[in-house]
Design a protein around this nucleic acid. Structure first.
Lengths: 168, 168
DNA sequence: AAAGATTGAAAGTTCAATCTTT
DNA sequence: AAAGATTGAACTTTCAATCTTT
């Protein structure tokens, strides 16, 4: 019998298939942000992260979200979000409001100018997402990507899905 | 026939399946780097990008690569790479050498200390990659991820596949 | 003491400019 | 002029510390 079976995953190393998947995933992870930032910067004077902040607020009830919820939705740490909201506030795109029911908390809300900014930025951003990510994939692959990313997020994102009993 | 077919991609917006795939992909893109950096920082005093630089050099002939090649392999801009190599050089993990055949070029080479650093860091890093990315996927999904990431890279990475004569 | 959030300093990245060699 | 690479300043993120409220 063969001593080493490459189809069996050895904990210490990655086989060829695993390596290919991993190397390509980190390549996407490293390159995508720069592309998104460039387009949004040039066309709308926003970083991709700023865009995400505005986008999440734009879809929230009252266009308002607590800082901690917003940090989860934008996949950011609270200090990062706080700094960015400070900048967006300075540009008049977002406003901070106290939360009456809990005086430790802060609400971030989209201003009218913030709404206009996201509405103006969206079409170009969507076109970029299509061009670089969605267009090169078949509909089946889009579906597969959603499933695969969800599986990774179940490990990587504490708030991903409420932990289900089985089939995690 | 129905006026609007949600399975047909409208250029301006994303349908539910596309949106799910996209939102989850950017969540992975935003969260993964922090996880990789944390583990490597704590256990090996390296960022993930520094790890990649050392890893690519460790597998290159003579453990040596030109700066521009290394920037492609690590998915980084040249200024970013240059700054990081300067820091790694300061720590004695990498050395810069002139390229005899082209005096504009610079080779980066792994020192013995750099080799030892990557050898020491690798097992913990591989374990993290398994834990957060590979383990939650089935072998088929690992394969699908490789295919999907390659398709995205064909748009996102100019050096992805050697530019073929047609179908650019 | 823990939760929610902010702050300032340190670290890393990006951008534009620059330099040398081809 | 283009290619290969580096530099310094500006900007952004991270880390640790801090503050207030629960």
């Amino acid at each position: 019998m063969p001593d080493r079976d490459r189809s069996t995953s050895e904990p210490q190393w990655l086989d060829d298939a695993e390596m290919a998947a991993w190397l390509r995933l980190i390549a996407v992870v490293e390159r995508l942000p720069g592309i998104l930032d460039s387009q949004l910067r040039q066309d709308s004077n926003l970083t991709h992260f700023e865009y995400q902040v505005l986008a999440m607020l734009s879809e929230a009830p009252d266009r308002t979200l607590r800082m901690s919820e917003l940090s989860l939705l934008t996949n950011a740490t609270l200090p990062r979000l706080s700094h960015v909201v400070t900048r967006l506030e300075g540009r008049g795109l977002v406003a901070r409001l106290p939360v009456p029911t809990d005086r430790r908390a802060t609400n971030a809300t989209l201003t009218e100018a913030g709404w206009e900014a996201i509405v103006a930025a969206a079409p170009g951003h969507v076109a970029t997402v299509r061009e670089y990510v969605l267009d090169p994939l078949t509909p089946r692959q889009v579906q597969q990507l959603a499933t695969i990313a969800a599986a990774i997020l179940s490990r990587v994102d504490p708030s991903a899905t409420a932990p289900r009993p089985r089939d995690g």
